[in-house]
Design a protein around this nucleic acid. Structure first.
Length: 608
RNA sequence: GAGGGUGUAGCUCAGUCGGUUAGAGCGUCGGCCUGUCACGCCGAAGGUCGCGGGUUCGAGCCCCGUCAUCCUCGCCA
């Protein structure tokens, strides 16, 4: 079928086009039928323009939402009273002279033209009819933003001598980390390919291959439970460099991020402040000040530690925690002193929900209200711990917390790990409640010097924190036999606003160091051969020193769009169980395919 | 694997203490309307109250089970 093709885009028609004949192609966004006059907002991917159809032009044609049109007409100015200030094209309209319906549209499953209502429409329905959902300008903008982001990343790296290399999707299972997605191998039933959880080994092999600077926009596959920010397949900017130090990798990724993100903020008019150079902090600092390895640095409220000050306290909860080798740490809740008992109870319940045995609290005021303890310096203390603490202890806590009158000071006494976990979450919770997590800010930071290994209590062994090829810091190798937990790695994360964005490391390139690493994490020679033989072989042929990093593309877009759900930034996402309601995948296969693959399904085990 | 929320018209939701024929807005269909832009006005159609079982004289509502979905914990080197 032939049709008249567009001479202009809907969204670009302006006063300057008045008098011109234009042809537009697009979808009917919305209709206003006044009987003798018929208005259509015509939409293409660039925007909307109003068409005015006289009765003789419109005729008996059946126009409804999402009908596909080719329209020819004259651009006319609107009378000042009729200007629509909400539209960039609102000063003009196109008076149609010719109109062709290119395709009709059925009754829609949801209101495509109403962005407000679409915010509440059931997700499953949106994903099932994704091709309609993506017609919305806000969704198209996400696709365009993502494409621009990937394009800029590629350009940035191309200009710096990186080579984009594709690595296989059909690869080998490495039973570690996440569950693999498996693909049956027809020629040898019982053998399977695995889809890559990341191209980690390939990129290191490319360094052995002398590529020196590699990157890839890489799909990664992990068969694990879903979360708001996790999909079974997701995209990373995977990159690796040879003959580099940690500093080289960091400065590259920082420069790239600043350049690309700031250009996107500008070009897409995103409601974000320009991104500043990255903050740097060590893993230890991060745990001490924020309780986790992905701090939200948009606000302060660092955790504080009063273990020393309350070690001999009359407050039994604190004393016994310290005697058991634990810590007493806390976080300040600005203005929390005005919370009711019930509200403070809710904060305590929040803490208990993450494993705290309880939460002690004090609040400080300047008036001698009933039940308050006089600190003798014009300040008065209330709270669950107020009476049990000595004035010196109380003052030490207030000083450590930097508490001002009116603040609530929340304290948790427990093991180091529990205080970190509970207080890091409480800090974010307080940040939310106090409105400190500013949507305009993107605060990027490097977290450095992660431990090389951590102790796996269940298995009674050391596990790699990152992966077995991560290089230890040379100067820390002296702890290898005496205190492996103290060895730091040349390993780094980029975090943004409390979310892990990128993770990378300098890799081990010396066989003797690699052998000691395997020894430390309890991987014997036989297991090394079977699981890592190919890469160890490769390293024996002159592997250069190398390292890399892999930022998440989906999350990068989420930062920029303020989406809290990763589905919003993926064209065709899957639902919670990994199900795609549009394609109806995964699906059964036909009998012949079962047969060809040499597969059968075992009956489900009977539940106990 | 565990916990919580949701499930009523095409969409978004209301539905009182368990009690008459399950409602509203939007959309759809029909009619009217020459300056609308969330057009307006009049009218109509449209329901397996997720599914199965139970309690009850009577269940959208209570109970048990189940399915789907969302969020969280665990998990994700």
């Amino acid at each position: 079928m032939s049709f008249v093709q567009r001479t202009h885009w809907c969204g670009e028609i302006r006063r300057g086009h008045v008098g011109e004949e234009v042809t537009l192609n697009g979808w009917v966004h919305r209709i206003r039928d006044l009987g003798g006059l018929f208005f259509v907002d015509l939409r293409d991917r660039t925007g909307l323009v109003q068409l005015m159809l006289a009765p003789e032009v419109k005729g008996q044609m059946d126009l409804r939402s999402e009908t596909v049109l080719s329209v020819t007409g004259i651009v006319e100015p609107r009378a000042s009273a009729n200007v629509n200030a909400k539209l960039p094209t609102g000063e003009v309209e196109v008076k149609a002279t010719g109109l062709t319906v290119l395709n009709d549209c059925g009754v829609l499953p949801f209101p495509v033209s109403d962005e407000d209502q679409m915010l509440r429409v059931n997700e499953e329905l949106r994903v099932k009819h994704r091709y309609l959902d993506l017609r919305r300008p806000s969704m198209y903008k996400r696709l365009a933003l993502r494409a621009a982001a990937v394009g800029k990343l590629r350009r940035y790296l191309d200009e710096r001598g990186f080579v984009e290399v594709e690595t296989p999707i059909f690869t080998k299972s490495t039973p570690e980390g996440a569950r693999d997605y498996l693909v049956p191998y027809r020629l040898e039933p019982g053998h399977f390919y695995a889809l890559p959880q990341s191209p980690q080994q390939y990129k290191q092999l490319l360094m052995v291959a002398g590529v020196e600077r590699y990157y890839q926009i890489a799909k990664c596959f992990r068969d694990e439970a879903q979360r708001a920010d996790r999909q079974p397949e997701f995209t990373q900017l995977d990159l690796e460099m040879s003959f580099v130090t940690q500093e080289d990798v960091l400065s590259l990724v920082e420069g790239m991020t600043l350049s690309v993100v700031n250009e996107l903020i500008e070009e897409f008019s995103l409601e974000k402040d320009p991104v500043a150079p990255f903050t740097r902090l060590s893993y230890d600092e991060s745990m001490r000040l924020y309780g986790n390895d992905k701090p939200d640095l948009r606000f302060g409220l660092p955790l504080f530690d009063v273990t020393e000050a309350v070690a001999g306290s009359g407050f039994g909860v604190f004393r016994s925690a310290v005697e058991a080798g634990g810590k007493v740490r806390g976080v300040r809740y600005p203005g929390g002193g005005s919370l009711s008992r019930k509200e403070v109870g809710e904060v305590e319940e929040f803490c208990k929900g993450f494993g705290a045995k309880g939460m002690a609290w004090v609040s400080v005021g300047t008036e001698a209200v009933e039940g308050a303890v006089d600190l003798g310096d014009g300040r008065f203390l209330r709270g669950s711990a107020a009476k049990a603490l000595s004035p010196d202890e109380a003052k030490a806590i207030l000083a450590a917390a930097a508490a001002e009158p009116g603040d609530l000071v929340c304290l948790v006494a427990d093991s180091w790990a529990v205080t970190c976990d509970v207080l890091s979450r409480l800090r974010l919770h307080v940040g939310d409640r106090c409105g400190l997590r500013d949507r305009r800010k993107l605060h990027f930071a490097f977290v450095l010097d992660f431990p090389l290994v951590d102790w796996n209590e269940e298995e009674q062994r050391w596990d790699p924190t990152h992966h077995p090829f991560t290089s230890p810091k040379f100067e820390d190798l002296v702890y290898l036999d005496t205190d492996p937990g103290r060895i730091r790695a040349d390993c780094y994360d980029v975090v943004c606003n409390g979310v892990e964005w990128a993770s990378g490391s300098i890799r081990i390139h010396r066989p003797d160091v690699q052998a000691r690493m395997f020894q430390l994490i309890g991987v014997g020679e036989e297991e090394q051969r079977s699981r890592f033989g190919h890469i160890l072989d490769a390293f024996s042929f002159g592997a250069p020193p190398h390292g890399g990093i892999a930022p998440g593309i989906d999350r990068m877009i989420m930062f920029l769009t303020d989406d809290e759900n990763i589905r919003e930034v993926i064209a065709f996402p899957k639902l919670g169980g990994g199900f795609d309601p549009m394609m109806e995948a995964p699906s059964d296969i036909d009998a012949r395919q079962w047969d060809e693959m040499g597969l059968m399904v075992r009956p489900a085990p009977v539940k106990a």
